[in-house]
Simulated assay, not measured.
Amino acid sequence: MTPPRLSLRGVTRRFDSVAALDGVTLDVAPGEFLALLGGSGSGKSTLLRVVAGFERPDSGTVMLDGADLLGVPPHRRPVNMMFQSYALFPHMTVAANIAYGLKREGRPRAEIASRVAEAVSMLRLEGLESRRPHALSGGQRQRVALARALVKRPRLLLLDEPLGALDANLRERTGFELRAIQRESGAAFVMVTHDQAEALALADRVAVMDRGRLVQVAPPREVYDRPATRFVAEFLGAANVITGTRTADGALESPGAACTLRPAAPLPLGVEAVALRPERVRIGPAIGENTAAGRVEDAAFRGESTLLLVRLAGGATLRVLHAEEDGAPPPPGAELRVSWDAASVVPLRA
């Protein structure tokens, strides 16, 4: 098994009485793209700053390739950080911005020229070397910031909301470019984001944070399909969370849904809630378990689908995604039945 590139053990950072990080333990493999995902105040940016050396933890260890980082100042760590603002020097050209870190290290002039040319080629910045940041588009400034970070050949690159300053169309295209650059460079990337779609599309693994703790770390599809907690289910993709009482044979009896939800395997003892993704709910006649009756309360057109809010017989509201290929969606006020497969019922911890 390949040793982790980055290894955090029990990292805690407090600000007065608030634990921004609460015993975080995490490994990042060489060449891995990890997304730290969470809302404001979840601790993801603090964790990034601890790894970079801008914050010192109150307890815990931070190791890179087996070496302790805590006694190493930020500028001596084999780690680079790309800030959301890009932090380019406005008075310097593209080439000078990229070369800045190498010059600070006292690298020979020929080596600097060679590595800057390599970074310019990797980031497709040819022809822009003599421009200054104000003459670049948002996407071009982002690539310059990446080039400046990668030119030093860090073993680990930290990215704080790297696509946050871009518009929606540019975010998608630049995200694909970022992923391709990560694969080409071979560096491990740790990216902070609050954008669920961005994390799912780019990362090898997603680490979901809440109130200073890691609540689930897994590949994107697993985090989406099998959320571990109610927080993950609601934060990532806004799944339906249905509460009830576990039956003796491992199903969930839900008064709010006025039905029984039976998963593919019996619910673990103590589980009193399950997740059900809106796209996994079918509209049509059905009876028995894993079916419910309701009325459409509202509808929102989303291009390829329509999101329906269905009030179930017990009073709970179910989000249902109706694909356009399935025909016209039922209008508000329509009475209907919905159903789902047992495999779509996901048990949730607290």
Score class of each variant (00 low, 15 high):
156 L>I: 11
92 M>I: 06
15 F>D: 02
263 P>I: 00
273 A>T: 14
194 H>R: 05
183 R>M: 12
206 V>P: 01
96 A>T: 10
31 G>W: 07
213 R>I: 00
17 S>V: 15
232 V>D: 02
316 A>Q: 04
266 P>F: 08
74 P>N: 08
17 S>F: 01
224 Y>F: 07
6 L>F: 02
232 V>R: 08
37 L>E: 02
40 S>H: 06
115 R>Q: 14
284 G>T: 05
278 P>Y: 03
80 N>L: 03
225 D>H: 14
171 R>E: 13
134 H>Y: 14
297 E>G: 15
251 A>C: 03
14 R>P: 04
212 G>R: 00
297 E>D: 13
179 R>T: 00
132 R>Y: 05
277 R>I: 01
215 V>P: 06
333 G>R: 11
349 R>T: 14
2 T>L: 14
70 L>N: 13
63 M>W: 09
65 D>Q: 10
35 A>N: 00
90 P>A: 08
71 G>S: 12
337 R>T: 03
221 R>V: 10
15 F>S: 02
304 E>Y: 09
325 E>L: 14
284 G>W: 11
134 H>G: 12
311 R>E: 08
328 A>F: 07
142 Q>I: 08
254 S>I: 03
272 E>T: 13
62 V>I: 08
285 P>H: 13
118 E>K: 12
182 Q>I: 02
236 L>K: 15
49 R>L: 01
227 P>H: 13
200 L>C: 15
332 P>M: 08
313 A>Q: 09
340 W>Y: 01
156 L>F: 11
192 V>M: 10
26 L>A: 00
249 D>E: 15
338 V>F: 02
94 V>F: 12
167 D>C: 08
323 A>N: 09
288 G>M: 05
72 V>T: 15
308 L>V: 10
346 V>P: 03
150 L>D: 12
112 I>E: 02
335 E>W: 12
75 H>Y: 10
167 D>M: 05
223 V>Q: 07
158 L>A: 10
126 E>N: 11
327 G>W: 10
23 G>S: 06
245 T>M: 14
198 E>I: 11
296 V>E: 04
177 E>M: 09
244 G>T: 13
198 E>R: 07
319 R>Q: 12
